[in-house]
Design a protein around this nucleic acid. Structure first.
Lengths: 330, 330
DNA sequence: CTGAAAGCGCTAACAT
DNA sequence: ATGTTAGCGCTTTCAG
């Protein structure tokens, strides 16, 4: 079933069929009707691959994330897909994991497939050094980075101000009388580093000393959180509040504290990050940070679409997070 | 940058370039080297769109799920993407939501884009009646249904035996002395209905009566679970155990019970479903069902790939779930 | 072993 | 207003 068959059935040339399909230029109403009848009868649908080849645009966006299973990524991807769909774009999803090689390979494949643009979800995409693959790809298609920052002609960034958010947490905790506050994180991502900076900044702003044992790096996940409590304990780091860089870490911390007989929030206040469903499942429920992933994703999709339409837009946008207070730090 | 430029640089015809790219037939080593040098030097990469057009295959799979934010779907999609990637396929992701119209539209778009096959994730894709869009699409490309069942020439199904799993839960509960067991669910999906059947079957097998107040339909999510407790309470349905069709419902049930001063598992035992991260975050941690979504997804991807390679395979495969006992029902 | 040329299904410039 | 035709970038007969 192709355009030739339609043309034959309608008794016109393929050019005319193409015209009515694309609602372009002038076609005599009479002819148009004949063609539309043929279209309907044959149940014709244009081959998008052929269209892509000639139009040199696929209406497809490549979305890279390290791991969709992470709820932050899942949320971002959901919104991205919805928004792009509204604008007529498909989304090719790629789970790159953390390895640089894999990210590079994926980006190459997406370019081969002629995506119109890319969105890199999460701060793992900002490498400590060597972001040349991103720069290279941006020579070909526009790239939007969701929650990391990278400068480049054809690169656009939307990020949440994680530093400010954590600094705000510290301030809130200080107001509640806390002076010994720990910070727990897992991976050394751009975003985790921003949060750590926020912690440091907040402590300094409150003129509080920072003991090195209060900054704890652990494995990811609940077990990582639980383990962080052990590390803190072993280090003799008594503290009355803990800020975790992820809700799941905080959930583990809750478990760890409970195991040590500490009450939350009476003995120790706990803060998570992301406002994921986890924060509402734990007992006590977690105070956390709503880092507005939906808003970021909506913005990211909007930016990319505007760029694709040839608009000139600002290269970066920051969104402010919001603290959510629940039982673990009322 | 196209094959013509490479040909020119190497001083050969485009046919020869194509041959070395595709490692096909005989090319004189000497010529091959010249071409490979040109390839490297120009940093040439074939245009996959053009290839797709002539090959009539895109190496792309459409994956439809109602909502990636759901951790079950996210898990499925992660594995699907990984597995397909290994075999050289890309994945176009579609979040269809629950509406039939949207599902139909998406399937049409994917066919237009000439995907090589589709995977429908989750039991929302099996309609009560009117699955003609799926049947129609299966005339064009093979379709794999992950966790629902539909018969068709070119349709393949991988499902978890949810009925058996819930029936097993009931049996376990009965062994622990429970006789008054409730079942809580949210949407009336194929899978939820299978679980409900399992509940009924299990109760009957244990020769226990089923009171209608024990079967509760509520909204989705934590609040739905919490609400289910109120409904049960209002209905005067005293029971000593509750089985939820989803972990998040179970998490809500835990909260609801706590609010009513009931202790879990002492007063009421609670079972979730999915073995999601939620089950390990709650206090007490949830007993739940590991419904092997990873295994299902791996199997689904494997089946589709085999079908695409022309293999004849069985049209359906069932995977057995596993009960996971934690604090809410030790 | 290599090249010329047809064709995948479509759009768009150019004729008529 | 409509048709003819030349590509888009590639693979694949078919000749040589």
């Amino acid at each position: 079933m192709n355009i030739y068959e339609v043309a034959k059935k309608a008794g016109v040339s393929i050019a005319t069929v193409s015209r009515v399909i694309n609602k372009s230029s002038n076609v005599r109403p009479e002819t148009r009707e004949r063609v539309e009848a043929a279209l309907k009868e044959l149940n014709y649908r244009p081959n998008e691959i052929a269209r892509s080849l000639v139009a040199n645009t696929t209406h497809t966006i490549g979305v890279l994330a390290s791991d969709v299973r992470d709820s932050y990524h899942a949320n971002a991807i959901y919104i991205l897909e919805q928004e792009f769909r509204k604008k007529g774009y498909h989304v090719i999803l790629c789970n790159t994991g953390g390895e640089l090689e894999k990210k590079k390979r994926y980006m190459g494949l997406l370019l081969d497939k002629k995506v119109d643009g890319m969105v890199l979800v999460g701060s793992v995409f900002k490498e400590r050094k060597g972001n040349s693959h991103i720069l290279d790809a941006s020579q070909v298609v526009p790239i939007v980075m969701l929650n990391s920052l990278l400068e480049g002609e054809n690169i656009y960034c939307v990020a949440c101000d994680d530093k400010a958010a954590v600094s705000d947490i510290v301030q809130s905790l200080v107001q509640r009388g806390h002076r010994e506050i720990a910070f727990v994180y897992d991976v050394e991502s751009f975003s985790a580093m921003a949060k750590l900076e926020g912690y440091r900044f907040g402590m300094q702003a409150a003129e509080l000393p920072i003991r090195p044992e209060w900054i704890i790096r652990t494995e990811s996940g609940i077990d990582g959180g639980r383990n962080a409590v052990n590390i803190m304990d072993a280090g003799g780091a008594a503290c009355t509040a803990v800020i975790a860089s992820e809700d799941n870490l905080a959930a583990g911390i809750l478990k760890g504290l409970k195991a040590k007989g500490k009450k939350v929030p009476e003995d120790v206040a706990v803060f998570g990050y992301n406002d994921s469903v986890i924060a509402r499942c734990t007992g006590p429920e977690l105070s956390t940070v709503d880092n507005k992933v939906g808003e970021l994703a909506r913005e990211a999709a909007g930016m990319l679409c505007r760029v694709l339409q040839g608009e000139k837009i600002s290269h970066s946008k920051t969104i402010t997070a919001e603290l959510v207070f629940r039982e673990s730090c009322p």
